[in-house]
Design a protein around this nucleic acid. Structure first.
Lengths: 226, 226
DNA sequence: CGCGGGCTTTACAAAACCTTTAAGATTGCT
DNA sequence: AGCAATCTTAAAGGTTTTGTAAAGCCCGCG
């Protein structure tokens, strides 16, 4: 899977971020000062770089601008300051995203995942791009759905919901799992949103038992694979 | 289930959080000052710790850094609003997440659950996903059962009951054991519920001696493994 | 700034389910 | 066979869960 390099002088932050990323299946490399970081970046050729602006030995921005001479790696900057200027400077030097400290580890992970998803979008289809079933066909790239070859218009959430269920055809997904997959770990509202959106999906699909309610547990997508 | 320790000097907060966590089935311990908190942490060895930064007797950060010498417990820090420095220091001292006060109890609970889910992810894969027998097939992921390839519609309890029995094919399970496995230790009603639900299962499965009554003891599932 | 679409919450009714109860049926024992 | 203990089953009552409509909120757009 994807390789990620974390450069930060505070070991606790490095460890924290690693702890969040490793379970997701990423290969994580670390460095705690500028020169070592630059070397690691060249050695390991990570797909994504998490870089603290303030580093001993070499400023993060300097590291970034040097690195940019030979690498297109995606960079997420960690900045302690809230000053806009930092962000702007960072982006102008070639960062692709930034997170201000103190940051929520979860937010950082979410951004990392999003970035990698985007990076992979063009090259290799991460998850299946198109899910085909007897009656339902779901094109992730185009974000389009057809039922019996009739195109159906779904909103973003509705689409993701259907996709999550379709990717797990035949398995029950709990509301929690669906919240996780569709809303992504940063949602803390009512669980019943799932019901509501799922109701909309059913309405639009013409609910011929394509999505089954499993009372007390969750929902299951039923259509057979093509 | 998981043990959670809450350390905060305001009883109202402790109670609030407890009130949200206990119904979820967590074992909740509490402490209202630093020394007691540290002791409780060592005594109970919780899986997760909710810690207020400001504590009488011992600063929360000091507690945390002391605790870190001997424990890897997951720590969520409660910080009074907007003290940026607190968050940074907290994370650097070894907190895993933080929530700023005033906080939404729901958010805190959501974070706790997410954290515990992540912690457990690697360890136990649970029971077998699919149990196959001569006549009965039971898919835990889909929560579906077939008998001689006819799909059977079971309610949540009925399914769990059959699963518990099937997982112990050939062994007698007492009503108590079944209550434990299916209802999960928090049930204090009549034991006869088991009989009733088991009767339903038999009806739905077409009870060709698949489940045997062992008078005075309990029930036994009989089908042969595939 | 107002509009409109989509998201979230809330509320209520309907449906599904769980528990209890109690009357019959069965079993095992003497 | 007769009796007591145990199990089965049907039905009623109460509870929980789900479906869905309606209203409010937020954000991007004109």
């Amino acid at each position: 899977m994807a390789k990620i390099l974390i450069i930060d002088d505070e070991p606790s932050i490095v460890n924290l971020v690693s702890a969040y990323l490793k379970p997701e299946g990423y290969e994580v490399y670390t460095a705690t000062d500028g020169p070592a970081g630059l070397k690691a970046a060249k050695t390991y050729k990570p797909d994504l770089l998490v870089l603290d602006i303030m580093l001993p030995g070499m400023d993060g921005l300097e590291l970034l601008s040097r690195l940019r001479r030979e690498s297109e790696v995606y960079v997420i900057l960690l900045t302690a300051r809230t000053e806009e200027t930092d962000k702007i400077v960072g982006l102008s030097v070639g960062a692709d995203d930034y997170v201000t400290k103190p940051f929520s580890p979860r937010e950082l992970v979410a951004r990392i995942k999003a970035a990698l998803r985007r990076l992979n979008a063009g090259s290799s289809p991460g998850g299946a791009e198109i899910l085909s079933f007897k009656r339902v066909r779901l094109d992730a790239g185009a974000r389009m759905v057809t039922v019996d070859d009739h195109p159906i218009d779904l909103t973003a959430i509705e689409f993701d919901l259907l996709k999550a269920l379709a990717e797990n055809r035949g398995r029950v997904l709990t509301r929690e799992q669906l919240l996780d997959k569709v809303w992504g770990g940063t949602y803390f509202g009512e669980m019943r949103v799932v019901d509501v959106h799922l109701g909309h999906v059913r309405q639009k699909l013409g609910h011929e038992s394509l999505i089954t309610t499993v009372r007390g547990v969750g929902y299951r997508f039923e259509d057979e694979p093509l």
